[in-house]
């Protein structure tokens, strides 16, 4: 076993995507209390991958979450998978932060931690911007290994340098991308199969350390972030207009012909 790896996994609490999700009518920010909150699914794959790497190389796994006080529920839940500790960046002034400012806060928080690798899910089910991993790499001036469906970390060479290699999932196949550590890695759900925590893991998670960071601890001005510091403003939100009532027929011998008639009527064939 080579040099141990210090790993930080970004974990986001998101509204349950299986339920109705809403924006607040007052300022169009996500109403994070209106629907059940869960750990962003893709992040569980990042946690699993971090645990696998720890098993292989030794080291530590810490979780990092930015979110309201209540996000601690998701942090505890995520800790059940087996990470060692968690850091919770929380501050009332952070509510309504845009992606640009979120990446600034997360980069500052990562600056207070020791790590060789930052792992995260390639996207969240709420914002779905898929930009945070790349933004963090940009801000931290480290390599980005984004969109991984496979990750390997080679042991350090004689100079002490360690190299990470991923298969980056693309629309047509994959790319092999390689970079020296430290690096930010984002993963898709094709990378592994997250395990279910055992009863022992669940009990152990209750006593794992969760530390809190406020904006003041990070030296970030509250006016620069959150709703009032956002780089974009929402001007309106409307529910998607319902699709016009469609035609539904029962299949018979002529169902295929009727379908082709429909396609022709819409000039699709």
């Amino acid at each position: 076993m080579g040099k141990p790896l210090d790993l930080v996994v970004l974990v986001k609490q998101v509204p349950d995507s299986g339920a109705d999700r809403v924006l607040r009518e007052s300022n169009f920010t996500v109403d994070r209390e209106a629907s059940d909150s869960v750990v962003n699914e893709m992040d569980e794959y990042a946690i699993e991958e971090a645990l696998r790497l720890k098993g292989e190389h030794g080291g530590t796994v810490a979780l990092l979450t930015m979110g309201p006080e209540q996000a601690v529920t998701s942090i505890r839940k995520a800790l059940q998978m087996g990470a060692d500790a968690a850091v919770h960046v929380t501050d009332a002034a952070l509510a309504g932060s845009c992606a640009v400012k979120t990446s600034e806060v997360l980069a500052a928080a990562l600056g207070t931690l020791q790590w060789d690798l930052v792992l995260c899910g390639a996207e969240s089910t709420d914002g779905q911007l898929c930009v945070i991993p790349a933004m963090l790499a940009q801000r931290l001036d480290v390599a980005a290994l984004t969109g991984a469906r496979q990750l390997t970390i080679a042991d350090a060479d004689s100079t002490g340098e360690r190299v990470g290699t991923i298969q980056r999932q693309t629309e047509t196949g994959y790319q092999t991308i390689q970079a020296s550590l430290p690096a930010v890695v984002s993963v898709w759900d094709t990378i592994n199969e997250p395990h279910y925590p055992t009863f022992r893991d669940i009990m152990a998670a209750k006593s794992k350390p969760v530390s809190t960071l406020r904006l003041a601890d990070l030296g970030i001005d509250a006016a620069e972030v959150g709703f009032f510091g956002a780089t974009s403003v929402v001007t309106s939100v409307v529910p998607r207009p319902p699709r016009g009532a469609g035609v539904v027929i029962d299949a018979g011998a002529d169902a295929g012909a009727k379908l082709v008639e429909f396609l022709a009527s819409r000039k699709l064939v």
């Binding site: 016009g244 469609g246 035609v247 029962d250 299949a251 011998a253 002529d254 295929g256 429909f262």
Partner: peptide
Amino acid sequence: ADFGIVGDLHEVLPQT
């Protein structure tokens, strides 16, 4: 659906 067929795709697709 703009156009829906309630039926077995294994029959409807070959017809189509």
